[in-house]
Design a protein around this nucleic acid. Sequence first.
DNA 1: TTCTCTTGTTCCGAATCTATGAACTACTAG
DNA 2: CTAGTAGTTCATAGATTCGGAACAAGAGAA
Lengths: 118, 118
Amino acid sequence: MSVRPLKHPEMASVALTDVLHALADPDRLAIVAALDDARTPLNCVETMERVGRSLPKSTCSQHYVILREAGLIWCERKGVELESRLRTAELDRRFPGLLRSILKAWRLRTTRDPGPSA
Amino acid sequence: MSVRPLKHPEMASVALTDVLHALADPDRLAIVAALDDARTPLNCVETMERVGRSLPKSTCSQHYVILREAGLIWCERKGVELESRLRTAELDRRFPGLLRSILKAWRLRTTRDPGPSA
DNA sequence: TTCTCTTGTTCCGAATCTATGAACTACTAG
DNA sequence: CTAGTAGTTCATAGATTCGGAACAAGAGAA
């Protein structure tokens, strides 16, 4: 049971539907919003603190896999931690304006919207 | 086994994650893009012709349920047909710029992106 | 070194979601 | 009434997702 190396897709091969699928979950969207706020790489614990919610770690780990494989985040292992940052600029070159408009929509959600993990 | 009446959510109660989930599928995204092109209501057959792909009807029917319940389309029965139109203006009031930027991204997808039903 | 703590990963079973054939409803035309 | 067309519902097999338990891997202390 060894830990696999991190794989990141080239931005050119990222599919729009994968990006949308990755963001179609309140927890993942909140993670992305937190990384966007932070503007600096964060590990999972720091991110979840900012999200203000604790998930089971296995679930959380899977969320990171999905975000990474959808091309949304870039991760590096720093010791025992996983440091992640948004691939903002690259993503915006591939899908101009997309991430911004989604994050904007997320930030003005009302109570009807599921907050992180409804 | 009677046919249930059509239910449309109020736009205020539409969640962003539901919208993203509805659009995180190549067939549904293609349907939405086709309705957006058309600018006039289309039934399922007409829409799928424009999409250029035929799905099993049960699958197609489910896609319409998902799009309708996510607040993306407004449907009316016209005789035996189901006429659908995008809820463009309403949606844009709720999530300004969102649908436009997603459709824009969809239209500039490359071969790596799954076309309708990859 | 070894022990322990922390951070995250992997595995696996249960619960949930999705796709589709078959049967059905509902309407139209002849 | 019969046949045809458009779409819905049901049942179920298949795919995804969630989360607990066990594990990996590095940091720090002794």
